[in-house]
Design a protein around this nucleic acid. Structure first.
Lengths: 343, 343
DNA sequence: TTGTAGGCGTTATCAA
DNA sequence: TTGATAACGCCTACAA
């Protein structure tokens, strides 16, 4: 049965005894106690450091965490290790957040959640103790409830959050506006919208609907023609392209990069030239948007800024500082490349 | 500055006081202490369970770990969160290992390593305390040294390990043998080898060289003709294919799936039929090998078995059981599909 | 400049 | 059937 580890780790007390000093002295030397006008005889300090090295002593963080009532560990929730479906946007945001957290003295972990009996592995919190959560990806209602119930501070990066949650989110409606501003500026009036299908499988993602609704609203309020085929997201790409051309659309706005790429492929096969025959603009500035032919003009999420900001918010929360905005909203940025022509 | 969490968690002692019983009783009820002929008055048990639910009490695992001198947490080392380069093989192996570990009462984590000053983020162990490591991917010498120095038991899944390490590894040389057995059985004599280029960037991976050497040895000992272009891994795919055909090769063995796919693309562009004009067999049974045209015959690593076995070995280690084989070797399996024809 | 002592939350041992 | 108590390893107020 589970028993004590064969090689018991060296402890602070061992160091102390070996050096003939008290635990407190060792502890102070090790953490460089600056708070209380700290000082040791250099001779003692050296002896301690030597012994530490000799025994390969590393403080036991379970003990330290217990004592300090905090772990300095942040868990990232919502990553899916099994299907590595994590997008570039997520990766960029997490990378930035992790950098900031490290700088502020926190470490970052993820857990491989234990699947529940009913097959859903949703929203399993890590069993070990952490100080805060960073939420990414698509959060189900169930997992949000679980996170809220934990009482542990959390910040979502482009996710929905519960009543106690903080978040960095992108203003999708504004993104649509900025796209239309740009397209109009380029002389486009007749704009088709290619809806997303990829996210259909994920019932808790409202992005597809939200973006669509925003588009319709915006087109209407600008009194631009609402081309009627934008509903048919089940439609084949070539068929969509044909209908768009038939409706005399001069530009297509596509839901995400996947859709954009598929449209470009369809266009290639149909000998439709982008942007010669029709312009294309999409969401998400991910790989390989810049490498397509032609390089794709997109609205991109400022992923790294959001990640950084989320990390800062979380640490502020943890250290009892006031965070004024519960939801911090970011603007999407237009990345002008060559898939949109002036009409 | 860092201060105590605003909402201090409920503790076992609070439950005890609230219920008018001792800590010990609450603890026993919660863990269902079977060892010592355990029993409680049902009334007391109910009261405790109710209070636990009411206060949303969750035991503090830092305290439990400190007391138990073990965390029941295993860390996976070698995953690269930033570039998500993890292969399907790794994912399958890890998935299987995680299942086993969960079953045996362990949870599994990964850390986002803090990059070191010199830019290399290699081999950073998580700072929190774990009971064991599972190694995957490509382990540098440096990271192995670090792992060994930690004194924490570890098992590698298809990685090299240090002197104290255990591992599940695949017998690559045997894989080559089995491939050649199969090709010879199918009547092939003149076999070209397409070396890998992808792993060039990773200096600590010896797989490319090892497999190549094994191939040459095996061909030689079977007195088959050694076609002379196998060295030129820098060669363009079409050029390689041309040379292979010119050398009257009837089959190509390719280093990995990436190479296989590239060869198939080249063949398609050159109107070379696989397996009509030349057969193709590769390593790694990953997505999308089965979906190519034609479906690719491959030698595949038994990833799930290896993952499961690695988990079992690690837990045996942790629980003080004897593990007889330090390195457990697995055979690659031939997956016969349609890219190899009989000559 | 250094030491003593108490406690973080849990669990196991022993006694009642 | 239950309770008191002593650790686990570390940190820090306080005392010396």
């Amino acid at each position: 049965m589970a028993r004590k580890a064969t090689t018991s780790r060296p402890t602070l007390a061992m160091i102390a005894k070996e050096c003939g000093v008290s635990n407190a002295t060792v502890s102070r030397v090790l953490r460089g106690d600056h708070a209380h006008g700290f000082s040791v005889r250099p001779e003692v300090r050296d002896r301690i450091m030597q012994t530490v090295a000799k025994l390969n002593y590393r403080p036991d963080l379970t003990a330290r965490s217990l004592r300090a009532q905090q772990t300095h560990v942040i868990a990232v929730l919502g990553l899916n290790h099994q299907w590595k479906s994590s997008s570039d946007v997520n990766n960029a945001a997490i990378g930035a957040a992790v950098d900031v957290l490290h700088e502020l003295g926190y470490s970052v972990c993820t857990s491989f959640p234990k699947p529940t009996a009913d097959g859903s592995s949703e929203g399993q919190l890590p069993p070990w103790r952490v100080d805060g959560y960073l939420l990414v990806g698509i959060q189900t209602h169930k997992s949000l409830v679980e996170v809220e119930a934990s009482g542990i501070p959390y910040v979502g990066i482009n996710t929905r959050v519960g009543t106690k949650g903080y978040a960095c989110q992108v203003d999708d409606a504004l993104g649509i506006k900025k796209v239309l501003d740009y397209l109009q500026e380029m002389g486009h009036q007749r704009i088709a919208y290619r809806n997303g299908s990829a996210d259909r499988a994920r019932p808790d993602s409202h992005a597809v609907q939200d973006r669509h609704v925003a588009f319709v609203n915006e087109i209407t309020s600008r009194q631009l023609p609402l081309l009627d085929h934008h509903e048919s997201m089940v439609m084949d790409d070539k068929e969509f392209l044909n209908q768009a051309l038939a409706a005399k659309a001069t530009a297509i706005l596509s839901y995400d990069l996947t859709e954009s790429i598929r449209l470009m492929q369809a266009a290639y096969q149909m000998s439709v030239n982008i942007p010669g025959d029709i312009s294309l603009i999409g969401f998400n500035d991910e790989y390989p948007a810049a490498l397509l032919t032609p390089p794709l003009t997109v609205m991109g999420v400022p992923a790294r800024s959001m990640g950084r900001q989320a990390a800062v918010m979380l640490v502020d929360l943890l250290q009892g500082r006031k965070v004024d905005e519960r939801i911090r909203v970011f603007e999407e940025q237009l990345i002008t490349r060559q898939s949109v022509a002036r009409v």
